[in-house]
Amino acid sequence: MKILHVCESIIGGTGSYLAELIPHQVAAYGRENVQLLVPETHFDFIDPAIRECGAQILTFKRPTRLLGSFLLVQRYLQAVSTFQPDVVHAHSSVAGIIVRVLGLRRNYRIVFCPHGWSVDMQGARYVRGFAEMMERKLGNAADSIIVISKHEYRRAMELGLSPDKVTLVESGIDRNVPPVPSAEWKDDRIRLLYAGRFDYQKGVDILLKAVEGLGNRFSVRLVGGFAVSEENMPETLPDHIAQLGWMDRDGVYAQMKACDVLVVPSRWEGFGLVAIEAMRMQKPVVAAAVGGLVEILGNGKYGMLVPSEDPDALRDCLASLTRETLEEFGEIGRKRFLACYTSDRMVRQIDDVYVSILPSRLPEPQPV
């Protein structure tokens, strides 16, 4: 089986998702049969697990998002012609639109994974309206749509997509804690970590408001940077908040090992992979009650949920934390992760999706 993954962006959760999936596919189908198409400017953000497994990496120029989309079209058509994939797996909205529109006449199968429906994003009403129109029109243009959370599945049904086309495959990661040393973070205060994009969707501005004036209680680290938008960040941050910039996954994991609690203040979220990465390490999670985060944390049973876009509620929740509460949620979060969110289950289910839409002449993957 020959598989081409197409991404308009690989920064954030999509990159982590592919870091679990692509090495498995290389082992099952051979490195010559797995390709990944990503922006040239995102090459350094490709997880080492993808580069080291031998998958073929293709790039396209992306000087701006708009011009990059046209250049992605050109590079994608070249890749399809040369590689002749059996399956094209498109990730997120822009790649999903391009692959489905260009796939009206084809001899390969298309799988689309939204990684968070664009119709859920906040902002101008006309943008959401356009996104909804496109998803309804292109709903049947993919052979299969993989959604990564129950929330995404419900939204697919609300969009009128056929249940026969939509498969729920909740995201997962390796059950083993990465063997990286903990970062240096000596502090008697509660060590609070944010890890992700600084874009509007992720709500880092909400967190900054929530911890304002709490330097006596918290030491805060922000790992990440802007990827989609350039929202305003304060020119200077209070002494109890440190902005560390982008890190590779091992760097993020080192910070996660050192923290006491992870905060995920998103405005909307298809899944929320960083939450299960923390739970794997037995780190408690405080998150906004949006999208897949509600499912991951079991409506507050396995972590702490607060209303979205409410810095006061987040502040109150953080101020109420005790060492005992953090330890308790860390333990139950780890159990939740092991029961529901491991990658061996995820990659098997995705293999099953591929096989279900392909002609019977193609062999099933070999066990690894």
Results as ranks from 00 to 15, higher is better:
T342A: 08
V286S: 01
L318K: 08
V26D: 07
R106P: 00
Q349F: 07
L4T: 01
V119M: 13
P178N: 08
M304I: 15
I332N: 06
V88P: 01
S219A: 12
A210E: 09
T82N: 14
Y108D: 06
K335H: 13
V261A: 10
I357M: 10
P39T: 00
A210G: 11
R348V: 13
R100F: 01
V223H: 00
D250Y: 07
L66Q: 07
D120T: 14
L161V: 12
W268P: 07
I276F: 09
S182C: 10
A227N: 11
R217N: 01
D174K: 11
I276G: 08
G333Y: 04
G196V: 12
G13Q: 05
A275Q: 02
F70L: 15
A28Q: 11
A195L: 08
D143S: 11
M134V: 15
R336V: 05
K137Q: 14
M121Q: 14
Q255L: 12
E269C: 05
Q243C: 09
A339C: 04
I190E: 06
S171N: 15
Y200T: 06
G68H: 00
P114R: 04
P284T: 06
I332L: 08
L138G: 01
L358M: 10
H42S: 15
M281T: 09
E212I: 03
P284E: 05
T64C: 13
G213Y: 09
F83Q: 03
E135A: 01
G215P: 00
A79I: 03
L21N: 02
H115W: 11
Y29S: 13
L71N: 00
R136Q: 11
R100D: 02
G116Y: 09
E158F: 09
W268H: 08
E32I: 06
G13F: 03
A289Q: 13
S356M: 01
R336N: 15
V306R: 03
L222G: 01
I145C: 04
A258V: 05
G300K: 10
M233R: 12
I11T: 10
F83T: 06
R100L: 10
W268G: 02
V220P: 02
A227Q: 09
S144V: 04
A227R: 04
G54W: 03
L102R: 01
M157F: 03
T14I: 15
I11M: 04
Y302H: 12
V99T: 14
S118M: 12
M304S: 05
S171M: 08
A313M: 08
K257V: 13
D188V: 12
L321K: 05
P114N: 04
N299I: 04
M233K: 06
L18M: 03
H151L: 08
P181I: 10
V88G: 00
A278K: 10
D86W: 07
V111D: 01
G291H: 09
P181Q: 09
C113Q: 11
L102Q: 12
R105A: 11
G139N: 00
P359G: 15
